[in-house]
Design a protein around this nucleic acid. Structure first.
Lengths: 195, 195
DNA sequence: ATCTTGAATTGACTTATATCAAGCGCACTT
DNA sequence: AAGTGCGCTTGATATAAGTCAATTCAAGAT
């Protein structure tokens, strides 16, 4: 049986509210543990993203493949993050993204309909959702700004200060793709910044 | 007196719910009409963004100035859009952005504390907030992806299909900055796409 | 222990975009 | 009507980053 404590702790910490015993039972009833081996897909391009996953253990990448066959990583995800293509999840449209486990992955997953129930019935859950929504808005605003106006080197330094754990957990070519760079460029950039 | 009907219509349309007479009175009580002349600032870098504005008429740009003195436009805004630096508005931190009227601007503005009240007491408002939050998440996800993996030309074509009204309302150098391009590059890019 | 695979590095070269500079044309002032 | 400022275009050149190719190295497979 999977570790619901991680989810409970997360909800309580982010929301600043406590979960009742009933709340916890409700969460355990509809969040389903799911395990993926490294390289397995949580979501495939073209499918509707029916589930949102809370990462208990492991890591994943969200990426597209362009016409030239090049992969572009949009998001790298670790423990205590939510995993989904929100566009597809909210609108029920086929996803343009793939989500792949980069390490063996344990998630707790739920459907949109069940999330709606949690929002209605669990105050801590709904408070958490509001905080997350704010955080996402802020983080995305920053990321758009960085992508548009920073140089490659500035974006890399930004990553180091905001997500230092990425350097330990993800191979450098994944980091490069996440930053919108070729692996060669990131390699050279690191060498030069030692000066 | 400013046009609250635009705000009422917007809330009802986005939320799919009706506003009661009481709801409308509450909104009129705490949303304050504010007019800015072209080139005036709704927000200055370094100030806390105390107000969120709903644009009734006019347009604005949200931009930063980098160390070299170059401006980077993060957002272009038109009628029926919300105007704020959400990071500063939510966290009450000094903003890194400027928001400037590009045309004479009429907004209805409110503080974070009042927005919280609306979320509690007006169901249509809170439903609207959820939809907007979803839309923002989706739009930002797309924009990040575009910035990272599209060429300048693809980003321009993306803009044409998503926001065709921008071409009518904003000068080309603003569009270029919004796309993360120099004005010269956008000019050349347009010429070449006529082939 | 050897073989294979893929990541990281490095070098040479190409391409996209920025920068700098000049000129044009339109709109607003006076 | 002439003058001024500003946005847009165009040309020449510089720079950042991408592409292609070769080499090294470490990790996993047999």
């Amino acid at each position: 049986m999977s570790n619901f404590e991680a989810l409970f702790d997360y909800i309580q910490e982010i929301s600043g509210k406590l979960l009742s015993a009933d709340d916890k039972h409700l969460l355990m009833e509809y969040f389903k543990p799911k395990k993926l081996r490294k390289r397995q897909y949580f979501l495939q391009e073209g499918d509707v993203c029916k589930y949102i996953g809370f990462i208990v253990k492991g890591s994943a990448r969200t990426f597209t493949v362009d016409e030239k066959g090049h992969e572009h990583i949009l998001k790298l995800s670790l423990e205590n993050w939510w995993l989904a293509d929100f566009e597809s999840f909210y609108l029920l449209t086929p996803s343009r993204f793939n989500i792949e486990a980069l390490e063996d992955l344990e998630v707790l997953q739920s459907t949109n309909a069940q999330i709606e129930e949690y929002l209605k019935h669990i105050p801590a859950f709904s408070a958490m959702a509001n905080v997350i929504s704010q955080n996402y808005t802020i983080a995305n605003q920053k990321r758009v700004q960085a992508a548009m106006s920073y140089t490659a080197e500035e974006r890399y330094e930004d990553l180091i200060s905001n997500y230092p754990q990425f350097l330990q957990r993800f191979p450098q070519n994944m980091i490069a793709s996440y930053l919108g760079l070729s692996p060669e460029t990131l390699s050279r950039l690191k060498k030069n910044s030692f000066k």
